[in-house]
């Protein structure tokens, strides 16, 4: 029992060793990231490249997506908020440009569907578990199983 536990902890250690970025001493000619780049990446991940299959403008190498990235940078530099930048592209391309569906009627529906499915699945699960009414009877010799065995012979 000790070995598996040890291994598991080792894996955990490996997982956690990576978490904090360590700032080191800056070399003389080191260029730092422009402020706001992290925010730009996060925002760009949510905007769909209009000419691609389903890539965000961060991922896409298309010229349209790259120009949109330049525009996002410009707008961030102007001090516009994420919501304003998102709205800028939405006014031009519509909801299509948002990779996460917005809270319109259709958007709400698609966000609600997983919950509905999960509720349905939970219902099925509950029903199946409730069906175990005759569990009190020790069941191995239930005739239905014999019927199964008869049906299952090949010849």
């Amino acid at each position: 029992m000790i070995r598996p536990a040890f291994l598991a902890l080792g894996l955990l250690g490996a997982l956690l060793a990576v978490a904090p970025p360590r700032p080191g001493p800056a070399a003389a000619q080191t260029v730092a990231e422009a402020p706001g780049e992290a925010r730009i990446r996060a925002l760009a991940r949510t905007l769909r490249c209009p000419v691609c299959q389903s890539e965000s403008i961060l991922e896409s190498r298309s010229s349209t997506a790259r120009e949109m990235m330049v525009m996002v940078r410009e707008m961030v530099a102007e001090g516009r908020s994420d919501a304003a930048i998102t709205e800028f592209f939405r006014a031009r391309y519509g909801d299509f440009v948002l990779l996460a569906p917005p809270p319109t009627a259709a958007g709400r529906l698609v966000w609600a569907l997983p919950l509905l499915f999960l509720a349905g699945g939970g219902g099925v699960l509950a029903l199946a578990l409730r069906r175990r009414a005759p569990a009190a009877v020790p069941s191995p010799g239930r005739p239905a199983l014999d019927a199964d065995r008869l049906r299952e012979t090949e010849l």
């Binding site: 519509g94 299509f96 990779l99 996460a100 259709a106 698609v110 569907l113 499915f117």
Partner: peptide, 30 residues
């Protein structure tokens, strides 16, 4: 349920377009 979500999420934009004519995206953040 997961498979159903992937199917529906993938087909949903098409369904919206067929029903309302509007175009939406269901992508990675979703």
């Amino acid at each position: 349920v997961a498979a159903l979500i992937v199917v529906i999420g993938t087909l949903f934009p098409l369904a919206v377009e067929v029903v309302t004519g509007a175009r939406i995206s269901v992508g990675a953040p979703y």
